[in-house]
């Protein structure tokens, strides 16, 4: 039994440390990249994978009870809400930035883009 407890601790600790590493990478990336839309990529990684890994580790520590259910609720909430946050933020950036074309391409016509992609696939 004692060894099983230690095994559980080890698995949980590994998950938590992975999550912590992802958070560190996230903060590093936010200083490394130059533009908001690139930084948002790092932030989204932390919001989904980082919080998923660290809360999975904490769930393993917790065992099977009502608290685990609450932690699952938190993770599910974050996984639903965080992409919407990123979507709104990117919309804000695209609308308010007047010289957006310096940083990235912008296509208003989606059908044309799809046609071009199909042509590329054919070639």
């Amino acid at each position: 039994m004692e060894i099983l407890e230690w095994v559980r601790f080890m698995i949980g600790a590994i998950f938590i440390l992975i999550g912590l590493c992802i958070f560190i990478i996230e903060v590093f990336g936010i200083f490394r990249f130059d533009y908001v839309l690139n930084r948002m990529h790092m932030a989204a990684m932390g919001d989904t994978l980082g919080i998923g890994c660290s809360l999975l580790g904490l769930m393993i520590f917790c065992g099977l009870n009502f608290e685990t259910f609450k932690i699952i609720m938190i993770v599910m909430f974050f996984w639903i809400a965080s992409p919407v946050c990123s979507h709104m933020l990117s919309k804000l950036e695209v609308t308010t930035n007047e010289n957006l074309t310096e940083h990235c391409e912008r296509r208003d016509d989606l059908a044309e883009l799809e046609r071009e992609l199909e042509e590329e696939a054919k070639c």
Binding site: F77, I80, A81, P83, V84, H87, M88, K91
Partner: peptide, 18 residues
């Protein structure tokens, strides 16, 4: 304001009851 944002509306249909 941005009107009828489909992504936000689908998210709100799931989250508001919760």
């Amino acid at each position: 304001e941005p009107k009828n944002d489909t992504i936000l509306q689908v998210c709100a249909t799931i989250l508001v009851p919760i």
